[in-house]
Nucleic acid binder design. Structure first.
Lengths: 136, 136
DNA sequence: TTAGTTGCAAAGGCTTTGCACGCGC
DNA sequence: GCGCGTGCAAAGCCTTTGCAACTAA
């Protein structure tokens, strides 16, 4: 049984077959699917599910802080259900593939070998997020 | 005279009035305009300049590593001409406004007061970029 | 001269939206 | 039954592209 599903039920989320399937597709570690990929997998279990519903559901999961939305360049956003354990992302600049990493020590130092997943490293980027004075 | 323009000329970049205007609009510190904003300002100096040319020129400046492309969420990308001095970004989660910051010490620590520009801080995100095994 | 640049308009990728129907609670 | 969720198709935003006309070097 899906952990994600479990939590959502607990939060009184109205359960439908579409939502169940989306939550099931997202459940697990190292999952970083685009909306379209989620839809493709969802369709295998529930052929009538629409893209709009997948988008709506993903948006809601992000709002509920159950899924993290990761934007990579101009590419389609990816959805990461691993919202409960802090981690960083290793992103392929060419195809957009994402891996979770958990660097220890100085975040700006090179990633340790076992956290590189065979990637050729090129840069580290730090982004601080918050609300600007006019939006706060 | 624009530093950016200067450098581009030095690199043998073919100079046209459109390119000159785009480079002039981008020149300076703390500039983080969207393509559309660049176009709007460019039009004030050169009314006939097209959006396509602005996009083409921006893409080229990014390729030349003279401008950094910053993607924030699903919003329009912003272009940062400050490509020569390493720095990080402070991004407003609501309106997408960007500020350059130069944190010292632990990047994951809270930003010092004088680097917050009045922002309400909420999170720090580290992204490692490179090429995955299949793309390398 | 001539290869590189521009403008236009159309297409394209990703995502959201309006509305009528359907279903969980 | 009520109100939220769904599906469809259309629209929207941002960006790229094809192509004929133009221009810097």
């Amino acid at each position: 049984m899906s952990d994600l599903l479990e939590r959502l039920r607990g939060r009184g989320w109205r359960m439908t077959s579409q939502r169940r399937v989306v939550a099931e597709v997202l459940d697990g570690d190292h999952v970083h699917l685009t909306a379209d990929e989620v839809h493709a997998r969802a369709v295998q279990r529930l052929p009538e599910i629409s893209r709009a519903t997948v988008y709506n559901t993903l948006r809601e999961l992000v709002t509920l802080d159950e899924v993290i939305e990761v934007s990579t360049d101009g590419r389609a956003k990816r959805y990461d259900p691993n919202a409960h354990h802090p981690h960083q992302h290793l992103v392929c600049s060419r195809c957009g593939t994402i891996r979770d990493v958990h660097p220890t020590g100085d975040p700006l130092a090179a990633l340790p070998e076992e956290e590189r997943f065979g990637f050729t490293m090129s840069e580290v980027e730090v982004t601080y997020r918050g609300l600007c004075p006019s939006c706060a």
